[in-house]
Design a protein around this nucleic acid. Structure first.
Lengths: 257, 257
DNA sequence: AAGTGGTCTAGACCACGTC
DNA sequence: ACGTGGTCTAGACCACTTG
């Protein structure tokens, strides 16, 4: 009756790894291992709920919780009457984490410094409004700042903040605090869009980054909204030879978890 | 006793949006809406399970399923005795989806063509082994191919395949089928790493992409493993002025969902 | 038509952390 | 110590889908 009188469904439970976790966690780990190791390849039919019940000697709700979790994680899909099947990994798509600049530099073991170059309040120009969708004439804060690693320019940050959405930004001291950090603390975002592209450094950008004109740069543009209203738009220029974005992941992280 | 005799917890259920979904889906949508809209800001304490039970007139397991789902989605965190709280959005980090080249081109509404330029089987050179960690002397397949959109070179793909791991690749016809697609169908990957960088096009690459030498290119390098064994390493060069990677997401997608 | 998953209930005991 | 979440049970009815 209890889950302890069944040994069949608990392969390797006597080893350290299977100990002292909850039953549904052990079942989930078992199934995930089979899927991620390839033992159950995409399309493979997972045992029915009643079979897993018998194997692990537990109630149906318990295996159901596990299988629902695997669906939410994108590892399997379920069809009534047919069964549960291992999902094919998501196309060629992938997921990439972009750390913030300061954390990035510090994690490379280099000294970090930040410099505010310009900070101007103005009514949004036509050019501004192409970057951040505020109404005509709405006030924006335009920031230009430089991230410095071990004394060398590391990245250039060019940011607009919609002051209607974030009026407190007008009085914030961005020479002391990173704009990104300040915004995150004061205005949680709810939607964001990233655009990554390669572009040659124009004369002004090249001078500020201390690289030759035309140097291939990685440009990351991020725009964030809160409830549909634009908050900020930022472009970060990285000289291409110094910066790479790296991501490591498994299908589980890519598919939904 | 049943869930129908309670009106309090079901705001807006009479509208079309709340109809005919399961109870836990409606509860989840309710809570997610409050969180993502900012009505419940980060740190806010969500009602206790027993409160939600009363509000929605349902069993504890039902609200528990909802709250567990929100944890898995990274939207809340729960502490015994203390309660459930809205999570702070993940740092400056972000998530980016990289679609595969063919889907990318077709989604832009352009005609897609693919050309195999070279396909060579060889023992891994020192240079190959810097890209793909196979044993010395192990056989690899080296492919070079071009993706063409509306008749113009769109991207250059430079790929190595470990033949020890994927012997069937030796006999595959890569002039007919995209290597990436073929691999995905024959060898599901389990770990992958991406590296994104900007680099100037060297003479040979520039010629094959039909751009001036030195053009800033976006280079995406992807390596995949199966159970720790390398399968393939690929570099895709995109002329920077034609290609941008775009990602749109909410904290839920970034945090773990 | 049969069997699958989808959903829900009304209990229960336990572990843990805050009070 | 108390109340929270964590987990689990042994049922139940329903909807869908496939054979």
């Amino acid at each position: 009756m209890t889950r302890d009188d069944e040994g069949v469904g608990d392969p390797g439970a006597s080893t350290a790894s299977g100990a002292d976790r909850s039953l549904h966690q052990r079942i989930r780990a078992d199934l995930e291992e089979r899927i991620l190791s390839g033992a159950w390849s995409p399309g493979h039919r997972i045992p029915f709920e009643h079979e897993l019940m018998a194997q692990y000697g537990c109630a149906r709700m318990t295996v159901n919780k596990v299988l629902s979790g695997l669906v939410e994680a994108g590892l399997i899909e379920r069809r009534r009457r047919a069964g549960s099947f291992v999902r094919r990994p998501v196309g060629q798509s992938a997921v990439l984490r972009i750390p913030d600049v300061k954390a990035e530099v510090l994690s490379r073991g280099e000294a970090y410094r930040y410099e505010l170059i310009t900070c101007a309040r103005r009514k949004a120009t036509r050019e501004d409004r192409a970057r951040i969708a505020v109404p005509a004439g709405a006030p924006v804060l335009a920031l230009l700042c430089r991230h410095v690693a071990d004394g060398r320019p590391y990245a250039l940050e060019d940011r607009l903040i919609a002051l209607d959405a974030v009026p407190e930004a007008a009085t914030a001291d961005f020479s002391a605090e990173l704009p990104g950090t300040w915004l995150l603390a004061h205005v949680p975002w709810h939607e964001a869009e990233h655009e990554i592209t390669a572009a040659p450094a124009d004369a002004r950008t090249a001078a500020r980054l201390d690289v030759p004109v035309g140097t291939a740069c990685l440009v990351i543009a991020r725009r964030t909204w809160r409830g549909g209203a634009p908050i900020t738009a930022v472009r970060i220029w990285y000289p291409g030879d110094r910066q790479t974005l790296v991501a490591r992941f498994t299908p589980a992280t890519a598919a939904g978890r």
